[in-house]
């Protein structure tokens, strides 16, 4: 049997699976992304880390600019069963030490830029601060990090999305559907600005961009 036919054959079963209702794709303006691309323009060889669900668009966008791109889906990795431990309160939680032994393993000062998207909003509480600290260490001095936060108006039904760069100042947000292998992540919390400043307190500067769609973009500089 042809090699590709074998691969296609395994997908044939998927035809019978009912298609889950998928929330709409959203195209949104991103001042934070625009600021980030401006900050990186003319900086020579850029090394960038994308922490969202793997995005072919983003990889194409940045490799065309000559950047070296790293991709690491930290939310997807955080659900690994081997990370689960029982914490002091008797609840199951992801162990940050185990997580950081496997994920975000980079030398200090590797990256010029990190695209964090809204990972912090959907990540387990036990991992958020350790991940931010690891990201800070992985950035070069002067490196930039772009994060997005949902505001209080965003309800628990807020969909975790895949962020595709659609232009210098625009993002396409495609919901991660339940039909795939990925779990659908739930909004864990809503950060206030003060919480965000505290979470990223090691960074030298923080710049907020308020959007109309219940989201805040934050550009941080190490």
């Amino acid at each position: 049997m042809d090699m590709l036919q074998r691969l296609r054959g395994s997908r044939a079963a998927a035809k019978a699976t009912p298609v889950a209702a998928v929330p709409p794709v959203v195209l949104r303006h991103s001042s934070g992304l625009l600021e980030l691309t401006r900050a990186l323009a003319g900086c020579g060889s850029i090394v960038l880390l994308d922490l969202g669900a793997t995005s072919p668009n983003n990889i194409a966008y940045f490799t065309e600019l000559g950047y070296k791109v790293y991709s690491e889906d930290v939310l997807g990795a955080s659900t690994a069963p081997e990370l689960r431990v029982v914490n002091g309160e008797g609840n199951s939680a992801a162990d940050p030490e185990l997580f950081l032994q496997q994920s975000l393993v980079y030398s200090e000062g590797t990256f010029d830029a990190v695209l964090c998207w809204d990972v912090a909003d959907f990540m387990e509480e036990s991992l958020v601060r350790p991940v931010v600290q690891r990201l800070w260490a992985s950035l070069k001095p002067g490196g930039v990090l772009l994060a997005i936060f949902h505001s209080r108006e965003a309800g628990p039904e807020t969909v975790c999305g895949r962020y595709h760069i659609a232009g210098d100042d625009s993002l396409e947000v495609r919901p991660l559907a339940s039909g795939g292998k990925r779990p659908v992540f739930q909004l864990q919390r809503s950060f206030h600005n003060r919480h965000i400043e505290n979470l990223y307190r090691d960074f030298s500067s923080v710049k907020f961009f308020l959007a109309r769609d219940h989201m805040r973009e934050v550009l941080l500089v190490k």
């Binding site: 669900a53 793997t54 995005s55 072919p56 990889i59 490799t63 070296k68 791109v69 790293y70 991709s71 690491e72 889906d73 997807g76 990795a77 994920s103 895949r162 495609r174 795939g180 292998k181 990925r182």
Partner: peptide, 12 residues
């Protein structure tokens, strides 16, 4: 790279 693929590493 098809959407849904999981990658931990660099792309060149």
């Amino acid at each position: 790279i098809e959407e849904g693929a999981f990658l931990r590493g660099s792309i060149e």
